[in-house]
């Protein structure tokens, strides 16, 4: 029985915490730094963003640490667990919508903007020889090679899908109380995620150097990089979360009925998985 239940059904209310306010200070520094940086004020921007970044790391470790310690103390009962699950669920919902809007952008550029431009009298089209094809050529007709679905991307699909399997398997092991197996599963997931990221970086590198496909390659390049880039960012975030889970597995934090952190991360990882599938289909394949 957890302590909070011993408390007469109280809902656990955390004590005042400096972390939220510090975190928003950090984001203010990052935001101001970012805005200055893109305008060429590199030096002040560097200081601001550097300080902001350090603060983010500090806050994250402190905040997550607090949550873990509270959990260890057993203050979270069933009711709190439900809150966390709903919270994570809605958070993922908002992420899904974020990606949907990016897919919407792809749809709009590909199926509305480009055909519309191509329908104009050639005198007015963005560049000579503009056609309603996807991928479009670059701006001013600069040539590039579009991505192929069946090289690295297909391999990456396999890798990410199998990482989804390992993390699910790990979760099952935890519910059964097999801690060691679960730890191995998380380790494997991190490894697969790492390989995925490495391949993705290689792909971007090749795109820039060999295919001449860049952010500036018209709407094809722009939508390609924003979609895959944001996905990559989410994989990275997922990897950080997985690493925390890995550490906690090693320390033996999780048990058959105490593994919300694990579960949440696995949800997140599945979400990242599904987004990739969509990417593979709509960005690379079709």
């Amino acid at each position: 029985m957890s302590i909070s239940q011993a408390h007469g059904g109280h809902y656990y209310l955390p004590k005042p915490s400096p972390y939220p306010a510090l975190m928003s200070t950090a984001l203010l520094l990052l935001g101001a730094g970012g805005a200055l940086a893109v305008n060429g004020y590199v030096l002040p921007a560097g200081w601001l963003a550097g300080a902001g970044g350090l603060l983010v790391v500090y806050v994250l470790s402190g905040w997550v640490g607090d949550v873990i310690r509270e959990n260890r103390r057993g203050v979270y009962g069933e009711k709190e667990g439900v809150s966390f699950r709903w919270g994570m669920g809605w958070f993922i919902a908002s992420e899904v919508i974020f990606f949907s809007s990016l897919f919407g952008v792809l749809f709009y550029e590909r199926n509305i903007a480009v055909p519309w431009l191509a329908s104009l009298n050639s005198h007015y089209s963005p560049w000579a020889g503009f056609k309603a094809v996807w991928p479009t050529s670059g701006p001013a007709g600069a040539a590039f090679t579009p991505e192929h679905a069946w090289g690295i991307p297909a391999l990456n699909t396999l890798i990410l899908l199998s990482s989804g399997v390992t993390v699910t398997w790990g979760l099952q092991q935890i519910t059964k109380g097999h801690r060691r197996a679960a730890t191995w599963a998380v380790g494997a997931t991190i490894l697969l995620g790492g390989v995925f990221l490495a391949l993705q970086c290689r792909e971007f590198y090749l795109a820039y150097t060999e295919l001449h496909l860049t952010l500036g390659s018209g709407v094809y390049g722009a939508t390609f990089f924003i979609l895959t880039g944001f996905h990559g960012l989410h994989v990275t975030i997922g990897m950080i979360m997985l690493s925390v889970i890995f550490g906690r597995c090693l320390k033996g934090h999780f048990g058959p009925d105490n593994h919300f952190g694990f579960e949440a991360v696995s949800w997140y990882w599945h979400f990242v998985d599904v987004v990739w599938l969509m990417l593979f289909i709509f960005v690379y394949w079709l």
Partner: peptide
């Protein structure tokens, strides 16, 4: 250098 909102790269301000 992207062209989401610029016809010069096939994008559209209306987006």
């Amino acid at each position: 250098g992207t062209h989401f909102f610029s016809a010069a790269g096939g994008g559209d301000p209306l987006l």
